[in-house]
């Protein structure tokens, strides 16, 4: 077990390092260095950057140095000082802008993941056990539909329906009164009132996918010899189902976090743009459009790190649940 955990940890760190390189590359991608665009922007606003300030910035980001030095300056700033660089669009440190948004993304993704599981698990089990029943057909069809409807389209359609027929605005995560308010119980309540629609939109895709996974896994297990053994020992069907095949099918189901979470984070970005949710999505988009690369790169880094760590957690959970992994 310990060896497994260590191996996973090492692997996670390697992945995180690779992710950070990719994020850094994205920062570097736009043509020209950002100082040019920065001073251009500054000039646009009617100021001129004096050469002292320019040199200071050059020094800070190591712009005269080869890329790996720049990378090191950037990543060490993040690791040791929590300094993600400067957002030129907002004239603020990235870290000031990012954490709130990122926290909301984590919250939204986490809740959606849990909802996805709670919904997908029983339906998947039912679908597998009552294969080819009418409900199985309905669920299967809805599953296909859920996979075919882009989440932003679903969000748009729901927003339209709510505003047209119920006169409700369903964008954002807070009512206007609470947007800038301090955190309080009332604000949390308000958040909960707003959260269910984005969660519904985001959970659709993952739920559809997970139902199919659970159904397929369980069907695989239902006809395995150990189920026959249990039956041959007089276990009742229900008892047997939950004790053995469902339990075994649960393991690959848990490891689906590895790909559900990245998809979820991806979907959350587009949906958040549509529904104007105060998560990473809209800010990342505007940062990319304005080529505010430190802000954009930091989001890409953190969102990727979120999924990598999510995957690590699911792997560890799996090891805890499945002796075969644990002892491998």
């Amino acid at each position: 077990m310990l060896r497994y955990v260590l191996r996973r940890l090492v692997y996670t760190f390697a992945t995180l390092a690779a992710v950070s390189v990719v994020a850094f590359l994205v920062i570097q991608l736009p043509p020209g260095d950002f100082l040019t665009s920065f001073s251009a922007k500054f000039a646009e606003q009617g100021g001129a950057l004096d050469s002292d300030a320019l040199t200071a910035l050059k020094l800070r980001y190591g712009l005269d140095q080869p890329w790996y030095v720049q990378y090191w300056l950037w990543i060490s700033g993040i690791l040791f000082r929590g300094d993600f660089g400067e957002s030129f669009e907002w004239n603020k440190p990235v870290s000031e802008l990012m954490w709130d948004r990122f926290g909301m993304t984590v919250l939204l993704s986490g809740i959606t993941l849990i909802v996805t599981w709670i919904v997908a698990l029983p339906i998947g089990i039912y679908s597998a056990v009552r294969r080819y029943s009418w409900l199985d057909y309905v669920v299967t069809f809805l599953g296909f539909l859920g996979l075919a409807v882009p989440s932003f389209l679903l969000a748009l359609a729901l927003m339209y329906v709510f505003s047209r027929y119920f006169g409700m605005s369903v964008s954002g995560l807070f009512s206007p009164a609470y947007v800038n308010a301090e955190w309080s119980l009332a604000k949390v309540g308000d958040l909960a009132m707003h959260l269910w629609l984005p969660v519904f939109v985001l959970a659709t895709h993952g739920t559809a996918a997970l139902i199919r996974v659970m159904r397929a896994n369980l069907i695989d297990e239902l006809y395995k010899p150990y189920v026959q053994t249990a039956r041959a020992n007089g276990l009742g069907e229900m008892e047997l189902l939950f004790k053995y095949p469902v339990r075994v099918a649960l393991n690959p189901f848990i490891s689906t976090i590895g790909w559900v979470l990245p998809n979820l984070v991806s979907g959350a970005i587009v949906t958040s743009v549509v529904m104007s949710l105060p998560t990473a999505g809209p800010l990342l988009l505007s940062a990319l459009l304005a080529q505010d690369m430190y802000l954009a790169g930091s989001f890409i880094l953190m969102l990727s790190a979120l999924t990598v760590i999510g995957t690590l957690i699911s792997d560890l959970l799996l090891a805890w649940l499945d002796p075969r992994v644990r002892y491998a």
């Binding site: 010899p225 150990y226 026959q228 075994v248």
Partner: peptide, 16 residues
């Protein structure tokens, strides 16, 4: 009446 099956490898649940 008891049964021993052909596949000892698969006849027991792997996670119990």
């Amino acid at each position: 009446i008891s049964l021993i099956s052909q596949e000892p490898m698969a006849a027991l649940s792997p996670v119990h």
